[in-house]
Each structure stands twice: as structure tokens, then as C-alpha cells.
Computed example of a mutant assay.
Amino acid sequence: MQLAAASGLMSLFLFIVAVALLALLGGGFWMTSRVKYREPPRPRPDEQPKLPPEGAVHEVRQNRESAEVPQTSKGGRPLTPYELTNMDSQPSESEERPRWSRGSSGSFGGGGLGAH
């Protein structure tokens, strides 16, 4: 019977734990409000980005042809990356997408059967 009876010390311990928990939660809200107060204010509606006067920008799809890599003479030393210039590309005349093989995009996992 004595074990089942509530002791004053146990009640005091539970009360202290409850007060500590409430203080911890209150401190969390206080810290959050301090951080939020230091943030810059949200932009007003007139500060929001606007569309350009000509309207929305649309995607442009085109094929590009890369410049040829310079050939070295037979027996000559290979070119280093520092000797190559910025290889520029130009728009391609062809509108057909280049393919590695029929039914495949040429990428790993492209859905094709591969080179058989």
C-alpha cells in the first residue's frame, strides 16, 4: 500500500519537470521571434518581379554543330587543353535530332535496346 500511495517528493519532481518543459517551449518561441525580427521584411507587391514588356520568354530548341578539333601532324605531339581555344558552336542547318541508333537517345538508360 505504501508503494501505491503518492509521495510528496514525486509530485514535486513532476511539477519541476513540467515547469522546465514549459520554460523550454517558451524559450524556443522567444528565440524564434528574435530570429524572425532580424530578417529583412517581405517584399511588397510593387517590389515583385514583373514580366518583360514583350511578354513571357519561351524556350528555343535548336541543334548546334560544334567546331572541329584541330588535327595534329602524324608523329607530332598531341595538343594540351591549354593549347585548345574555346570551342565555339554554331546553329545547325538540320532540324533533325542526332541519334546514336534507331529508337535510342544515346544516353545511359535511354530506353533503347542498346547496340546489338
Rank of each mutant, 00 (worst) to 15 (best):
G55R: 07
T32V: 13
V19M: 12
P41F: 05
G27N: 09
N63M: 03
G103Q: 04
T72H: 11
A56C: 10
P40Q: 01
Q48T: 06
A67D: 04
R64N: 07
E83G: 09
P49I: 08
P49N: 01
G28L: 05
Q62A: 13
V57P: 05
L22G: 14
G26R: 09
N86M: 09
L14R: 14
G103Y: 05
S7A: 08
G76S: 15
G75E: 05
H116E: 11
E47W: 07
E54C: 05
L84E: 04
E39N: 10
L79E: 05
Y37C: 06
V19F: 08
S73M: 12
G110N: 00
L22V: 15
V69F: 10
F108L: 08
R102A: 14
S101C: 13
E39M: 15
G28H: 06
S105F: 11
P43W: 00
G8T: 13
E96F: 02
K36I: 09
L22F: 03
A5C: 10
G27C: 15
S73W: 09
F108G: 08
S101M: 13
S7Q: 12
P45Y: 01
E96M: 03
R102I: 05
V19C: 08
E54S: 13
A67S: 11
Q71K: 15
G103T: 00
A5Q: 13
E96G: 06
P98A: 02
I16K: 06
G27D: 04
A56Y: 07
V17L: 14
E68G: 04
P41T: 02
E65Q: 04
L22R: 01
W30A: 15
P53V: 07
F108R: 14
A6F: 12
S94F: 08
K50Q: 11
G27M: 08
L9D: 15
V19I: 15
P53W: 03
R77F: 08
P98R: 02
K74Y: 07
